[in-house]
Design a protein around this nucleic acid. Sequence first.
DNA 1: TTGTGTTTTACGACCTCC
DNA 2: GGAGGTCGTAAAACACAA
Length: 227
Amino acid sequence: MDQTVLISQVYPYMAETHSQCIIVNQIDGSSSPGDGSKPVKRRRKRRSKGSSATNEDDVGAMGGMFRKRKLTDEQVIMLEYLFENEHKLESGRKEKIAGELGLDPRQVAVWFQNRRARWKNKKLEEEYAKLKSQHESVILGQCQLESQVLKLTEQLTEAQNEIRKLSERLVVQETSTNSSTSSLSVEVNDAPTDFEFAPTDTSYDIPLYMLDNNYIQNMEYWNGLYV
DNA sequence: TTGTGTTTTACGACCTCC
DNA sequence: GGAGGTCGTAAAACACAA
C-alpha cells in the first residue's frame, strides 16, 4: 500500500514556504494503525555494543524499527516547522503528525524531546554569552572607577600636604610676631588646636576634617588671619 | 580509506502531574 | 498507576582532515 502523503493538504499553511517538500516517504511498517486504534506500546531494546547491523535489526519491535534510521530532510523540515509553532504535542496531534509523516508516534515524540533538549541547550548558551558579556563590562567599569579613585587619592594627598605646609608657615610667622606684640599673642593662643587631617592609610575615605565642624571653624579662623 | 569529533536518533531511569 | 516530561547516554550517521 502506497502511503505517501500530501503534506500540503494536511497543513495548508505550509504550502507557501514548503511547497517543494510535499511528498514524504513512508517507511515500511512504522506507521501507526490506520484504523484509528491506539498503537501498542512496546519497548525497543537498545543495541548492545559491538553487535553488527543485520537485516534482523531492521525488523525489530514496533513492526520494523530497531536499527536507527535518520529521518529524511523533508521529515526534518516538517518537524522543525511544527516545532516553531509548538514545542509540545498532545497525544492525538502527535499521532496525526506521525501518520502524515510516515513515522512512528514514538519517533515523533522522541524527536520533539531531543529537539526541546537542543533548544534548551541553545538558550542556555545564549544566556551564558549574555551574562558573560555583562560581567566583562562590569569588570571594565570597575577598573575605570579604581583608576579614578587612585588619581583622586593622589590629588587629595597633594592638597593635604599643601595645607600642612601653609599651616606650618603660618605658625612660624605668628610665633615670630608674637614676641613683639602681646595683643596678637592672645589671638594665636585662641586658635583651635584640634585641627585634623585625614589618615593617609585610608586612601578611599573622605578626609575626616571635611566632615568635622572644627574644619569649618579652623578654615574661618585661618582665613580671618589673612584678611 | 580511516581515524576522530560532532550530530542525530533512540532508550532507560527517574520525576511530576492528574 | 499511567502518561508524558527531562536527563544522561549509547550508538548510528555524518563530516572532515590526514
